[in-house]
Structures are given as C-alpha cells and as structure tokens.
C-alpha cells in the first residue's frame, strides 16, 4: 500500500469534482489517481496488494442517504448504487418480484461482506485472476498493457471461456451483474455534466486488445442507480461453486422467463463465472422466445449459450458445466411456482 489522501464527499457534486480533478488525460478508470471508496471490500484489498495505487481516495459513503433507495414500483425497480447487498437481498418485494436479483446477491460473498458492500461497488469489482492480483508477475495486460498474459498458459481453472481475447482471459467474478444484464437493467451514471443513463450491458468492456479498460465509465463518473422495467417473478439464479458459501462461481446462470399459456413470451439468459464480462446469451434466448417448453429445449438452449466458448488447459470443464447449469436453471425457472 502506498500513501494516499483521503476525503469524504458530502454530496454528489463534491464527489464528482474530487474524482475528476485528479484524473490525468487518457488514464483508464482503473488507473485513475483518485478512486471512490464505498464498502471498500475490493479497493482496499487491491491497494494492499499494490495492484491499485491511487493517490487520492474519495469516500462516497455520505452519499448513501441519497443513493441507497430500494424502490420497487408498479412499472419497475430502482436501486440506489450505495444500497448494501444484504439489504437488497433481504427485501421482501425483491424476493417476490425479482428472485434472480435477491438470489444473486444472497449467494455472493459472505454475510459480513454483503453487509459492507454496495451494489455499485459490486458491479465494479475487479477480476480475481491470481496473476492480476500478484504484482510479482510482470506479464499482465490488465496491469501492464502489452506485457502479455501469465494466465493464458498458467493455472487458469477459474478463468473465462467466453468473451476472451488473446490478451486476457480473466473472469468477471460477480453474481449480481448477471441478474442486471439479464433483466435489461439501465445504469444511471453521475458525472460532471449531470447524470446520464445507459444499458447495463454497455457498462463492461470485453478485454479485446485493451484489457486495462474494463468499463465505459470515465474518471470522475460514478454509478448512482440501477433501474429495471417490469417485474420478473419467474426468474432464478443458479450458482455452482467449490464450497457451499463464500466462494465465486465456477459457473452460474441467471434466467428470467415470461410464460403465458404455456408459451415462452420472453426469455433472458445470462452467464456468470465463465465470461470476461457479465454475459448475455442472446442466441440461447432466441431459441426460447415464442416456444413451448419441451424436454429437449434446455439442452439446445445450453448448447447455444456456449457455442462460442473456448476452453484452455484447466478451465475447459466450464463449458460442459456451464451447459448443465443453464439447462438446470431453465428447468427450475419453468417449474417454479409464482
């Protein structure tokens, strides 16, 4: 850890100001000199590991009053970015109308972390790739652009099989983001010029040739809220992992269905633990829409979801696993009582 200045932002303007002021031109957000601190469950770790080296920390927890709404309404849901994971997971109406959200949060991290971590920070958490988190490895394109990727031919059991590039195979580790991307969430971003709104699906960037650029946010911008249209009571989050709690997904699936009179009117399929970014499997969804459920459908959907997957030495199992997880989650979503 290196020395840094610390200030508390008492309102959004001040936060945006403080974060933007320290930004140097062309710095990707992950390397910005000023970083926002909310729950602190990722940032502080990465600072201790010397992976992130901000010189200024802007504590945005005073904004919680304004930014921690949990507001299900008639036409949809609004969630403040500083709402705590545990509060959202425990909210009765979220559990009723958006089980995929409640479960994705409930199955993430540990109770202690969920009590601290915020929604905004959760979607922004960075990869758990060991080679990224260990600065003694020079070759990490995320940390040192152009230096190579130690994970590519290293111990890569936890790494991604979808959305990878020849520069980076680091997995996006979160759970909640799969629920958001599945439900076509919008993300509200507050910056110097006020607030703007964009599809959550556009927030995260695939690594491509610039793995150091992870999101569409610019230095000085903060996520202030998420919003979702409609209700999704027929939705599930299924997570496969090495232990029963407090562990990242080896593979997960967020499924949301709208079934009317036996016909699947709308279907959402998102994948976690297997991709470099929150992953929407639109090819899989296309196989579901307008169809009636049959026993072979889960397998066809699962195959479509992983059609483009590419495994490496230690993580190829994730393709077969991911398919079974999607198929099972789909069966659960179809048969769940709502």
């Amino acid at each position: 850890m290196r020395p840094f200045s610390y200030q508390r932002a008492s309102d959004p303007d001040m936060a945006v100001q403080a974060l933007g002021a320290a930004a140097a031109a062309n710095d990707p957000l992950t390397k910005a000199a000023a970083q926002p601190l909310a729950g602190g469950t990722t940032l502080i770790d990465l600072m201790k590991l010397d992976v992130m080296r901000p010189t200024a920390i802007v504590d945005i927890s005073p904004l919680a009053q304004a930014w921690s709404a949990i507001a299900p309404g008639g036409d949809g849901l609004r969630l403040g970015a500083l709402a705590k994971m545990s509060d959202v997971a425990a909210h009765a109406e979220i559990q009723r109308s958006y089980p995929v959200i409640a479960d994705s949060l409930k199955l993430a991290a540990s109770a202690q972390l969920r009590n601290m971590a915020t929604l905004g920070g959760n979607v922004m958490q960075r990869t758990r790739c060991n080679y990224f988190r260990d600065v003694s490895y020079e070759n990490c394109n995320k940390r040192n652009p152009g230096s190579g990727c130690a994970a590519m031919d290293g111990v890569n059991r936890m790494h991604a099989v979808l959305g990878t590039s020849d520069q980076c195979i680091a997995t996006y580790p979160g759970d909640f983001a799969q629920a958001l991307i599945a439900l076509d969430a919008m993300v509200e971003v507050t910056g110097k010029a006020g607030t703007r709104s964009m599809p959550f699906a556009q927030l995260h960037k695939r690594p491509g040739s610039t793995p150091d650029i992870e999101t569409a946010l610019q230095p000085g911008e903060l996520i202030s809220a998420f919003s979702i249209q409609g209700r999704w009571p027929r939705s599930v989050y299924l997570k496969a992992r090495d232990r029963q709690s407090y562990e990242f997904a080896l593979s997960s699936a967020a499924i949301a269905l709208d079934i009317q009179d036996g016909t699947i009117r709308d279907a959402r399929v998102a994948l976690g633990g297997v991709a470099t970014v929150p992953w929407r499997a639109r090819e899989a969804e296309a196989l579901l829409k307008g169809q009636k459920f049959d026993d072979g459908l889960p397998q066809r959907v699962a195959d479509a979801a992983f059609a483009d997957a590419r495994g490496r030495r230690h993580n190829s199992f994730k393709i077969a696993l991911g398919k079974r997880v999607v198929a099972r989650a789909l069966q659960q979503a179809v048969t769940m009582e709502i």
Partner: peptide, 11 residues
C-alpha cells in the same frame, strides 16, 4: 485464503 479453500460453516 480466498483462493486456498478451507471449509466455511455451511460446508
């Protein structure tokens, strides 16, 4: 201790 797994209570 995040990646060297040991059991949690739920296990």
């Amino acid at each position: 201790l995040a990646d060297y797994l040991v059991p949690v209570n739920a296990d």
